[in-house]
Design a protein around this nucleic acid. Structure first.
Lengths: 162, 162
DNA sequence: GGCATTTCGATGACATGTCAACGATCCGGA
DNA sequence: TCCGGATCGTTGACATGTCATCGAAATGCC
């Protein structure tokens, strides 16, 4: 950290824009989601990941890794979602420690009815504001950054075991 | 929401990449910050905004608006930061309801010593992974989305008054 | 097989963020 | 001037996220 290379004008513009977009987009998407479906963004993400996997079932560990959540966070969150009837837990056949998270019919119903509005909002506020070239650029750039970060932080969780 | 236009392959790639980058970058930047300076990202943002304003002072309201935080959140957070000696509150001269948030010397010291490492991390994990063209594209695209969202959500806070 | 180590998921204590109030003050119009 | 409504910041209750720890079970090594 000898001579700290600050951000030049263009870099700063990109960095500030990114952070502001992030925040505004979050607020708006969360607002739309809860208003139209009663789900929070974390709820939606959990249900969405589950619904994309065969039979709507996933090991807790697997789900946590995909979402980049700590197991602790996911466990707490599932407890709450379970109380609302969106998911259930089952014992894992091949690993007696494990538990399998299962999407309930109500849970599937909830994502499926929330999805169109959510996608529409993503479109309206992000995708449709971008040119095709920008969409490709965003895809390329984010994946490159993700690859870079994945390399250096094997499992960016908070559990000491990682 | 008649026929929900799903995201095509390229749009989906951009959207997923964005969300994943967001999460990984957050984890890494937060990790670096707290490890090297004992500040959380929210702490850093508060201090950073304060340090950029004249005399390190801002009306609470003004600071909340700039950060896109609710006043409630900011008030709670300031209470905690105040206990750590990073900021203080002063009464506002021209508005007896108001309070002015003031950066303490310790607070300024904290940001200033945290800043080089933080900027270096932003560089290492984001900026330096991007081509100059991508930096400009990111700046352009984010600001366009921000303008769009600003238009439709005057003050995206949670206070009913907005 | 026996034993240390690692992994899995849950839990409780605590930090942080949200939401709905509230009292105080300011503002604008009759 | 006086009054109704808006704004300011705080507060308490509650929702959510983090962190350290735990018991149980799996894994690897001898």
């Amino acid at each position: 950290m000898d001579s700290p290379r600050w951000l030049d004008e263009r870099e700063d513009r990109a960095w500030r824009g990114y952070r502001r977009m992030r925040r505004l987009l979050d607020l708006e998407l969360a607002r739309q989601l809860t208003q139209d479906s009663g789900l929070s963004e974390p709820d939606y993400d959990v249900l969405s990941d589950l619904s994309e996997s065969p039979e709507g079932r996933l090991r807790l560990r697997e789900l946590a890794d995909r979402m980049l959540w700590s197991r602790s966070r996911l466990s707490h969150h599932l407890t709450r979602m379970q109380q609302r009837g969106l998911v259930t837990r089952e014992e894992c056949a091949d690993d007696a420690r494990g538990s399998v998270v299962v999407l309930t019919p109500a849970g599937r119903q909830a994502v499926e009815s929330a999805a169109p509005g959510h996608v529409a909002a993503v479109r309206q506020h992000l995708i449709d504001r971008l040119t095709p070239a920008e969409i490709d650029a965003l895809g390329a750039l984010t994946h490159r950054v993700v690859d870079h970060l994945n390399g250096r932080t094997p499992h960016p969780r908070h559990d000491p075991e990682a």
